[in-house]
Every structure is written in structure tokens, then in C-alpha cells.
Design a protein around this nucleic acid. Sequence first.
DNA 1: CGTTGGATTGGCT
DNA 2: GCCAATCCAACGC
Length: 202
Amino acid sequence: MTGRRRLTRAFFARPAVEVAPDLLGRTLVRILPDGRRLAGRIVETEAYEPGDPASHGFRRMSPRNATMFGRPGFLYVYFTYGNHWMGNVVARRVGEPSAVLLRALEPLEGTAEMASFRGRGSPMDLCSGPGKLCRALAIDRRLDGAGLVRGPAVWLEEGTPAEPNAIATTGRVGVSVGVEPQWRFLVRSDPFVSRGRPGPPR
DNA sequence: CGTTGGATTGGCT
DNA sequence: GCCAATCCAACGC
């Protein structure tokens, strides 16, 4: 693909509401323990900011959410609904819990491995949801706190950023706490986005 | 220490 | 479209 350079610390050290749309069109790369490379184009994200009642960072720091409170440019991985891992990119700076949830990818490399991990073959059903893409890329607790800027296991490449007029926004999926801002970002009409319905409109 | 419900998914109606 | 599955962090007593 196009931009193969890694995104730098400065890219992540901004508010999540800026990082989230800027991640659309970028390439998420995952190197498996045996060296195989998996990759996908990001087509859907959500922002979680400090003071946000829907964010894990809204409460006090704990072993579970500690990564969110740390430096930007690291992966925050958590477990939910008894089955699913969620992958987030930490934004802003130390002490300002902020992250971008990776919600959907278009599979680009290693689709056979993804299909194997997912137990499904359809390209549009491999990474079209936050839990699905973590399963497809073998992302779990072991990658919580992984460095995206210099680390060997997972990172982001420049790719081809989505055109601003190709980006749609909605309320976040599964969020119904207080007034819900339009902090879900997706590539308009992209067939690889999740089927999750956004929360109540503002 | 017991209860509650979640940044979801997949299978069934 | 609807709903059960399944674990565990957070919170209340």
C-alpha cells in the first residue's frame, strides 16, 4: 500500500476526537509471535475523552484501565461481555485518560489467518466489529500496554487517510450514558464497517 | 461478599 | 430483529 511509515508519538498525543477520524484509512499492522504479518485498513473508530461518563477513564485508575491513563501511542486492551477483547489506541497525554476504540477494518494482509482465528471466511465478517477484529488479529490481554510507536507486535502505518468528505459521524454504539456526542467516525458507505447501531441521537 | 450490567456477538425466530 | 451467552470489574451492603 501507500504510506508504510509508522505513525509517530505526536500523531497520538492529541485529543481522541482528533485522532479518531484521522485513523480512518490508516493501516493497522499485527505481527504474530511466529512472524506472520496481518494488516487491515481502519474504517470505523470511536473517541473516548477525559470527563466522559461512557469512558473507562471516567472512574479512578485501576489495574484494568491503567493503560488509558498512561502515555499516548500505546494499545489499551480490555475484556467485556464475557467473551470479547476490545482494542484501543491511547491518545492525549499522561494523566488524561483518552482513547480511540478500533471498531472495524478492511482485511488487507493475512486474511487466511484471520479467517482461521475467526472461524469464518467472508472478508466482510472478519473485522467488522471491535470484538471481531481483535479475534481476527489475535489481540488479547497480552497486548494491553503494547507500544505502537516502537514496539514489535502491533503498530499503525500512514496508509491513505480518508478524505474528510468521506467521513460520517454518529453517536457511539452501545453507549446510552448522559448526552451522547457524535464521536463515532466511519468511512461513508464502506462495506467493512460494523453493523452496530449508534446510541440515541443528540 | 453478593449483585449488576457491560465500548458485543452469533444464532435463532 | 431479538436475545442469551459468559466473565469479571465496579459498586453497594
